[in-house]
């Protein structure tokens, strides 16, 4: 269970502190029971699919300004922490 949790934390980019882990693990175990339960179901019907509506290709004129909430910008590009390639 711990391994699953750690892998999920890595993918979800969430830093876990040790104190939280037992509580999360406990709920995980309970929720996994749901998960396993589902595995025994066979012979399920296909789903009916609705159709998505499409939008006309036109640009809308707005005065929307992104609110970076006091983050720095350089020539309107957003400054973000260094990205390792």
């Amino acid at each position: 269970m711990r391994k699953h949790l750690e892998k999920a934390a890595k993918l979800a980019r969430i830093a876990l502190n040790e104190e939280e882990v037992p509580a999360i693990e406990q709920a995980f175990v309970g929720l996994m029971a749901h998960f396993e339960h589902l595995g025994t179901i066979e012979d399920l019907p296909e789903m009916k699919r609705k159709a998505v509506r499409l939008r006309t290709d036109e640009t809308a004129v707005t005065d929307y300004q992104p609110d970076w909430e006091e983050r720095e910008t350089k020539d309107q590009a957003l400054v973000i922490p260094r990205v390792m390639d």
């Binding site: 934390a9 969430i14 939280e20 709920a27 929720l31």
Partner: peptide
């Protein structure tokens, strides 16, 4: 990103997000 989410999310949110990711 890891720190934002580690400290920004509460316990129940973490539980569901991690379970959902899994």
């Amino acid at each position: 990103m890891r720190d934002s989410r580690g400290r920004g999310f509460g316990l129940e949110v973490k539980r569901r997000v991690l379970f959902g990711t899994h």
